[in-house]
């Protein structure tokens, strides 16, 4: 990295030798350009990584920016702003311990749009149905209960499905890795049983209120028909 020239007329008492984070207006142009380039690279990186919808690790983001780069936080912030400004997407941290991030759509929802390829659309349909079942049943269900429910929809965990193929793999592997679902084994069960809950991506991409709306629409009822679920949904929306 080239030597940073200090611009004249600095009034800030915080500026001392070796200070890393100077304010942008006090940096020279080559540095600005390099920063801009890093931000653009990170934005490209995030877009590419989001293709498979697997949460992005901060460590990987750091590698792209260049590990020696001290202004990492600023670059990430600016990348987030660019994603919002240009694409209407939001960069969100879904795990504060593991520091993993996802992109979600921040534009106000509208009807009649085609934002997905057909194959993806079908998977999202199944996902929302599963999320609905989990929520309406108290936020946690056993795998046996879920399979029993899905059978009613002609979806069987053991049989390859015409649309979804290996459904067990889709739910317990793909959706789990994408953090749409949280699949945890129940201890001391043999053969092993699992419980299904919403994953952190589901929590960010949708809400209890929205899911209840979906159920209500399908069943032709008002969301308030399910009193306690509705209460829970309202409580979540308020927080």
């Amino acid at each position: 990295m080239s030597q940073r020239k200090r611009s004249k007329g600095l009034s800030s008492s915080q500026m001392t030798d070796g200070e890393e984070d100077c304010s942008p207006s006090q940096r020279d142009q080559p540095f600005q350009d390099q920063m801009n380039q890093k931000v653009s690279e990170l934005v490209q990186f995030l877009l590419v990584k989001d293709q498979k919808k697997i949460p992005i690790r901060r460590a990987d983001m750091l590698k792209t920016v260049g590990q020696k780069y001290k202004n990492y936080t600023e670059i990430v912030n600016r990348a987030g702003k660019t994603l919002q400004e240009v694409f209407g997407l939001q960069l969100m941290e879904i795990d504060t311990k593991l520091h993993t991030y996802i992109l979600i759509d921040n534009l106000p929802r509208a009807e009649g749009e085609y934002l997905c390829k057909d194959k993806e659309k079908e998977k999202m349909g199944l996902l929302l149905v599963v999320l609905s079942f989990i929520f309406m049943k108290g936020n946690s269900v056993k795998d046996t209960a879920l399979w029993e429910f899905l059978r009613l929809l002609r979806v069987h965990p053991g049989k390859p499905h015409k649309v979804f193929g290996d459904v067990r793999k889709l739910l317990m592997d793909e959706f789990a890795r994408q953090k749409y679902l949280d699949v945890t084994p129940i201890p001391l069960t043999d053969p092993p049983e699992f419980k299904f809950q919403w994953g952190p991506r589901a929590e960010k991409e949708t809400s209890k209120k929205d899911v209840l709306k979906f159920v209500a629409k399908i069943q032709g009822k008002d969301p308030t028909f399910w009193v306690s679920q509705n209460k829970e949904a309202e409580a979540e929306a308020a927080s």
Binding site: L47, D50, N106, E111, C116, K121, M124, L128, R154, F164
Partner: peptide
């Protein structure tokens, strides 16, 4: 069940999911 059954659900589901389009 028609062959586009799950697409119909999916089309509706997208309204409730804030899934980011991919490049």
């Amino acid at each position: 069940l028609p062959s586009d059954a799950w697409q119909t659900v999916g089309q509706e589901a997208l309204k409730y999911l804030r899934r980011a389009p991919t490049f």
